[in-house]
Design a binder for these strands. Structure first.
Length: 425
RNA sequence: GGAGAGAUGGCUGAGUGGUCGAAAGCGGCGGUUUGCUAAACCGUUGUAGGCGUUAAACCCUACCUCGGGUUCGAAUCCCGAUCUCUCCGCCA
């Protein structure tokens, strides 16, 4: 949620920022006129109430002394009627204002370029030469099937298209990667591991900005109005929802492994082969609550932590800075990290690191104090995948495949596989 | 799933339909005393909105889980929801 005071103070700046995201700036004018009227009516309402409040003790005194209070009672009743009338107006203005505020996305940072998906810029290429193959590298689904690691057909049988059955070394590799990533972020990067619920209620999804209008992307249980996580991010955002943290608790750093579910509505047939786009996938998510002045520094650090993960797995990657029109609803600045998948000859997105500034903190009423009795402030919230597994598995199989059909396991991963050096049939 | 009990400030815990943002204690902060620490004593200590300010203060309004209702007036009475606890049932 944007700060209404900021919108009041610098409407033109806000409009420009929204335009950069390809949002309609006309909403701001509407918002401002509602806001002005609302405040006027609110002042009116409050002074009526104040006047009525003053009569209260007079009635009490009059009644106690056995006097006639009927005239005061009448005046009080009249004030009440006026009050109620004004209150109704204020209430509807409030609701309209809030509805607009909740629909407005975060403002992109000054360093974020205008444009859409096609306007992303590559800001850091892989620092080493990609592997040169002496043979034609196979796509990961062929490798995974011949090593009996992933059973695509049975996944479909169990749940439908877009679901897979990990088996044998496939299941074990998945588990090893989860442990590798959790260990890296907890032991080396200082995150606290948390195990979160895999379904969240509507309030939580609203605070994180995952529910705006329609939500065709999430699996939803209508019986209990619960949503399956599309990512661990909303769960982590809501850990401190409606809390006033005291004193100086920041930075807070959390890491969580969770499965993630995405309906991928509207994406049918698009890059769906193998592990590129599946409805349920494993992911390790890193998350921070930080003081406002250090959030952009934190974003760079988190991006480095993501890269570290890929470097240890010896996977070539690149970093993209997304354009304003392509960043998520709550984000002010986002980097995507992509790994190279030589078998299919594509860059695959395995992480997205975002600085959501105070946007989610406002929606979720998450506040902190720098010291006892200091004024409450909104922290900045950041999230990054560290990383999403299926595409990492795809890139890993394709990158480290050998001509004999086996796959060499990167050094860093071996301790998590009982010292295994190679995946073989 | 069934039955009952409860929800008050950072915490514990009072509270009569009227002057209650709410006693008291603890904690926090500031101070006095003290060689230091502790103790003691004094003071202070919620959040949000509106207005205002360089920044404050002052002022007004709201908030005793949440949402409705009764009333001139609700922490207090009524209804609903949520959550917590206890008992029963079921169960990994």
């Amino acid at each position: 949620m944007l700060d209404i005071r900021l919108i009041r103070a610098e409407p033109e700046k806000v409009k420009e920022a929204l335009a950069k995201r390809r949002e309609d700036p006309a909403l701001i004018d509407e918002l401002l006129s509602i806001d002005e009227e609302r405040r006027k009516r609110q002042t009116e309402m409050e002074s009526l109430r104040a006047e009525q409040n003053k009569l209260g003790p007079q009635i009490a005194v009059a009644k106690k002394s056995g006097g006639d209070a009927s005239e005061i009672l009448e005046r009080s009743s009249a004030l009440k009627a006026q009050f109620q009338q004004t209150e109704e107006i204020v209430r509807s203005l409030d609701a309209r204002q809030e509805a607009i505020l909740f629909k407005l996305p975060n403002l992109p940072h000054d360093t974020v370029q205008a444009g859409g998906e096609e306007d992303a810029t590559i800001i850091r290429p892989w620092p080493y030469d990609p592997r040169v193959f002496g043979f034609t590298p196979k796509p990961h689904w062929e490798i995974a099937e011949s090593l009996r690691m992933i059973d695509f057909e049975r996944g479909v049988k169990l749940s439908g298209g877009g679901f897979v059955l990990y088996s044998g070394l496939g299941a074990r590799l998945e588990r090893a990667l989860i442990n590798f990533m959790l260990d890296l972020h907890t032991l080396k990067h200082g995150y606290r591991e948390v195990g979160v619920p895999y379904v969240l209620n509507r309030d939580s999804m609203t605070a994180s900005g995952h529910i705006v209008k329609f939500t065709p992307e999430m699996y939803h249980d209508s019986e209990d109005d619960l949503f399956l996580l599309p990512t661990a991010e909303p769960a982590l955002v809501n850990i401190h929802r409606d809390e006033l943290m005291d004193p100086n608790p920041l930075p807070l750093k959390y890491v969580a492994y969770t499965p993630c579910w995405r309906r991928e509505a509207g994406a049918a047939g698009k890059d769906t082969r193998g592990l590129q786009r599946i409805h349920q996938f494993d992911k390790v998510e890193i998350f921070r609550f930080v003081a406002p002045e250090s959030s952009y520094e934190a974003l760079e650090e988190m991006t480095h932590e993501v890269c570290k993960t890929l470097e240890l797995l010896q996977l070539p990657y690149r970093i993209l800075q997304l354009a304003a029109g392509d960043i998520s609803f709550a984000s002010a600045k986002t980097y995507d990290v992509e790994v190279w998948s030589p078998g299919i000859g594509k860059w695959l997105e395995v992480s997205s690191a975002s600085n959501c500034t105070d946007f989610q903190a406002r929606r979720g009423n998450i506040r902190f104090r720098r010291e006892t009795n200091a004024k409450p402030e909104f922290p900045h919230l950041l999230n990054a995948s560290g990383t999403a597994l299926p595409r990492v598995v795809a890139a890993l199989l394709e990158t480290h495949q050998q001509e004999d059909g086996s796959v060499t396991i990167p050094e860093a991963l071996r301790p998590h596989l009982g010292g295994l050096e190679k995946l073989t049939a």
